[in-house]
Each structure stands twice: as C-alpha cells, then as structure tokens.
Design a protein around this nucleic acid. Sequence first.
DNA 1: GTGCGGATGAACT
DNA 2: GTTCATCCGCACT
Length: 202
Amino acid sequence: MSFAKLDKAFYTSSETLWLAKQLLGKVLVTETNGEKTTGKIVETEAYIGPADKASHAYNNRKTDRTKVMFEEGGLSYIYLCYGIHQMFNVVTGRAGIPHAILIRGVEPLEGINVMLGRRKMKEKAYRLTAGPGCLAEAMGLNREHNGLSLTGNVVWIEDRGVVVPEKNILASPRVGIDYAEEYIKKPWRFRIKGSPWTSPAK
DNA sequence: GTGCGGATGAACT
DNA sequence: GTTCATCCGCACT
C-alpha cells in the first residue's frame, strides 16, 4: 500500500497558519544516498510573509539565500544557522509572497538506524530528532537540498491518515527570535500536545 | 573586501 | 543557569 504524497495544491494554500497545523501528524520522508528515513511531524513554526519581523524575508528582503521563499509553495528551504545547524523549511503560498514553515520536530518512524548513524548516536533518544538542527541532520538534509521540489523523489511529505484534533494542538510563541519585536509573542509555533519528540522549551 | 551575528545544541558550572 | 562551537549570509565600505 502506498501513502498519499502531499501535492502542489496543498502547499500553495495562502493559509500558512492552517498549513502549519495541517503538517502536524504528517510524515516527512527523505531518500538521500539511497537511504530512506521517515518521521512524523510533531512541531512546526510559521513564518508569514513580508510583515513578519522574525522572517528572513521580512520587508520583502530578497537575497540569494531567501529567494526560494518567494517561489511558489512546494519547495524546500534549507539554510545554515550558527555556522553549524541546518534548518529545514517548507515554502508555502503563492509565488511572490515569502511564506515558509519551519519543521522543528519529528518522531522517527523508519530508518532509525540510519538516523542514529548520521547523528553519531548509539541508542534511540529524544534528542535524535527533537529540534530543527537535529532533525535535519537525522534526515540527511543539508544545504544541497535547498530549493528542491517537495513533489519530487528526494524529500516529500505524506499523509498517512493521522488526524490531529484541534484540542491536541498546542500553540505558543516562537523560539530564538528575540529581535522580532511585536512578532515575538505571536503564537505561531504549533506542537502535538504531549509528544516527547518536540524541541526543548526555552 | 571586511566584520558581525544568527529561526541552535551540547557541554559545561 | 551560562558558554561556546563554527561558518555563511548580509550589510556595510
């Protein structure tokens, strides 16, 4: 049996907050170097358009790095942070409007041994994929995967029929964006309530 | 060309 | 709780 790969129509929705919640419970799949890994998305953060001061594309700032955010939804946006960590984002919305959703936490499903190897860990632990830098490394993603189509065969997201009811979604302020002034408090971080695979609270 | 700092994580005290 | 690793992107000159 095969699962439904999310298609272009899903990603091009302009309802970024709705999309960020829809992604909870969906399954992120990567197939890099012939090794397949999958993980259920348990935590996301929305970065909404040119008005969002927390976004790299605030005030329509368009550079070599951020230009992929201005593309039509359905692409990956992966960048290096602090010189060390890769961040995996999903570009959403229509062309010309820089919306993106950062995937902050997944629950490992398949290919756990591969993930352990990439993270140089011996045993399964929550820190395997809890946090944006961790999960990108575990899933084998790096800057070379920036701008890839999420409807291709390297990285994509599947709907395996998991529905997360609204009451099990926890909305809270985003993390690590203390420079974003009035946008610091926007509750645009979404988690599945009770999941131990979400990133550590700060 | 140069300098500064970051959508973090891990290892400390 | 604090510190630091580590390098690219960005805003200047």
